[in-house]
Amino acid sequence: MTRVIASRALQALVTLLGVSVVVFALSQSTGNPVDVLLPVEATPEQRMQLIDELGLDEPLVVQYLTFLGNVVQGDFGKSIRTKLPVLELVVDRLGNSVLLVSTSLLFMLVFSLPLGVLAAVKRDTIVDRIAMGLAVLGQSLPPFFTGVLAIIVFSVIWQVLPAQGSGTWQHLLLPAATMGLFTGAGITRLMRSAMLEVLDSEYAKLARIKGASEMRVVWGHAFRNALIPVVTFVVLMYGVLVAAAVTTEVVFAWPGLGRLAFEAVLWRDFPVLQAVVILWAALIVVANLLVDLSYAVIDPRIRRSV
């Protein structure tokens, strides 16, 4: 078990190093920072001094290691636009993003999973058709468009929910539902096919023969086993989740990491963007690691194969 944990943690570390190399390499192509930081009329002496201060005359490897060292210590430099330390900006927004993403996950849990189970149990009926229709529709509409539609319907026409901003639970509803619809649609479809497979298995048949009620077969036996591929899928979906979060936050002016990244793109504020990417990658890698390890704890068959 210790070996498994160690090898997984090592993999996670390698992935993160890979991310840092990519980001550092790209930062090299943003142009000479001296041109950005100094006014045009700066003297050659001033330029030399800045180059010396920033360590720009060092070999690339040394520059990379310095960069890595700073990142590990939480020093991402200063924002080009606001001149504030990047870490402050990022930490400020992190909580809001976590709140939004977890609410949308909750939305998914409450609506998508039961809908997928229902569609499987009522296979080929009108309920199944409607559920699958909704799921395909949800998968096909990008969140930035459903967000716009939601604002038009709920804020402009019915005027029941606020269109933009944050602070109250009402502000959270539309963005979370928008994100949940997009990400939850895939979950519903997968849940349905996983349930169909499990309901057809030998142990589900045995449970029925033993006289277990259909309710018990579905929720007691089938549901938990059908969840395994779904959980794997959710992990693979982090990338999608991040994309959905960025556009959703932009549409609803939700002050999270995604909107920060968007603003950084608008202002060409590279240090901020760099920090968001690294932080997000770290979150994803750690979440992946935890899920992988929890598998190993839950399912002995997987424990041997990791």
């Binding site: 991310v19 990519v22 980001v23 790209l26 930062s27 192509s29 943003t30 992990v235 693979l236 982090y238 990338g239 991040v242 994309a243 960025v246 990244a261 968007f262 950084a264 793109v265 060409r268 590279f270 963007l273 760099q274 968001v276 990417v277 997000w280 990658a281 994803i284 890698v285 992946n288």
Partner: peptide
């Protein structure tokens, strides 16, 4: 598992 959209944003800026 990578946040592809963010990489795309980084490319767009750089």
């Amino acid at each position: 598992a990578f946040p592809a959209i963010l990489i795309a944003l980084v490319f767009a800026v750089t």
